[in-house]
Design a protein around this nucleic acid. Structure first.
Lengths: 232, 232
DNA sequence: ACTTGTTCTCGTCATAATGACGATAACCAG
DNA sequence: CTGGTTATCGTCATTATGACGAGAACAAGT
């Protein structure tokens, strides 16, 4: 690999907005920074892309190294890229941000690098002053996640492999921070082709009458979408 | 600016998918490459980001330098970032791609760098073998543009400042490559709040009965969206 | 002046999707 | 067996959509 002198060298990092729904709140992963700059501040997990590493691979690697999460269950997609000069005081860095949506997994064992990784409710994170421009990245990730629930079945990425309609509805209510009518939601998700696939099994883990268990269907898009209010 | 040795240096470019509607076809800008690699092949306009330049600024600069287009009229947004190792045979390059939607402007005067910039129908471009992974980037840009027409008023970015409903409908038909019912389309766009703003003036440039002229409204999102068929 | 061709714009009707909400089913705990 | 809880189905009014009829308002030609 030759590095010509004709082009300015940039550092490139892959950072992640990792979201889950736990304890009735939408939470994101942050890690406590161990050294300057922004020492002691919360930051999104991430790090430099290696010389021969693909960008999605770097995101997955950082997710595993810094949070201990297995990428298998999570949905990961590219979010956006941030490169404002001065956003890293040390040098010119371009950050390719990824958005990961995961079911509620146990907090990673504080082994390896993941020592200070934590799930924190996003309400606290958006109010806090994160390192670098990570507050902006987090906000963009949140808006992307909220929008994606409208026209894709990705709400299921927050659920375990098998889940009930009510559990999926709680996901929507928590991510959108708005109450939904249980009966209309049930009608919508069960009648939209390809959204849910019944397993035949039932569960009573939510109390009350037993609920059907579903897994995610095959479609990538919802037709028609499940829209938030006109305020959206 | 210090370049620590601890991180691998990347080249960073800003490339553009520039789309317009002209002569009843969706067209994109390509330039003919003057030197290796891919000498003589069509490529998307773009180039290296400068050491103290913001990413959107680099995209706007490249657009102006390589195509002579004034960024004022166009809509520009970040598309995605491409960084697969080996995508540029010379060195490791990460490309931040931008999507630009512009009204039909005259072909740039073949002055400056824009000597070999051309508008080419996207049907030809997607079939051609563009330089690097630019075919992939172009496809992603096309899909983004098609999707954005559904739930934003960005179809107006392809129109001049004042336009008729029929002209906007032609944009939709050409971008989606599907016929639309003129009467239903008219009802939809004129009754969706914030989509169009009447100017009071009329025109007969399309022949037939004079048509109202509109400009773009203030809303950023369409509620409800203007969906393509369930085929998605 | 009148006809013809064109496009614009409004209206009608059936169907589909949505929001609001009643009612029943099926479990658990006491 | 009673009351509490949640799941699921159904009803009804409202809204959005797709298909299409019909008149309005121009230009061009006769």
């Amino acid at each position: 690999m030759v590095y010509a002198s004709e082009f300015p060298p940039f550092g490139v990092t892959a950072d992640l907005v990792v979201l889950t729904v736990r304890d009735e709140a939408l939470c994101g992963v942050v890690i406590r920074r161990g050294h300057a700059p922004y020492k002691g501040r919360w930051a999104l997990p991430g790090g430099f892309v290696e010389p021969d590493e693909d960008l999605p691979a770097a995101a997955v690697r950082e997710l595993r190294e810094e949070t201990g999460l297995r990428p298998g269950a999570a949905h990961i997609e590219q979010l956006a890229t941030y490169g404002r000069p001065g956003r890293d005081p040390r040098m010119r860095v371009v950050t390719v941000a990824y958005l990961a949506l995961a079911p509620d997994l146990p907090t990673p064992s504080a082994g390896s690098d993941a020592a200070d990784a934590r799930w924190v409710p996003v309400a606290e994170l958006t109010a806090a002053r994160l390192a670098f421009d990570h507050t902006t990245i987090l906000r963009d990730g949140l808006e992307r996640a909220r929008a994606k629930l409208e026209y894709t079945p990705l709400g299921t990425a927050f659920c375990p492999a098998e889940f009930t309609v009510a559990e999926l509805r709680r996901v929507y209510e928590i991510v959108w921070d708005a109450p939904l009518d249980a009966r209309n939601f049930h009608r919508k998700v069960t009648k939209t082709d390809g959204f849910l696939e019944p397993t035949g099994r039932t569960t009573t883990r939510d109390g009350g009458r037993p609920a059907q268990l579903y897994r995610r269907g095959t479609s990538e898009q919802l037709h028609p979408p499940l829209l938030r209010g006109p305020a959206g």
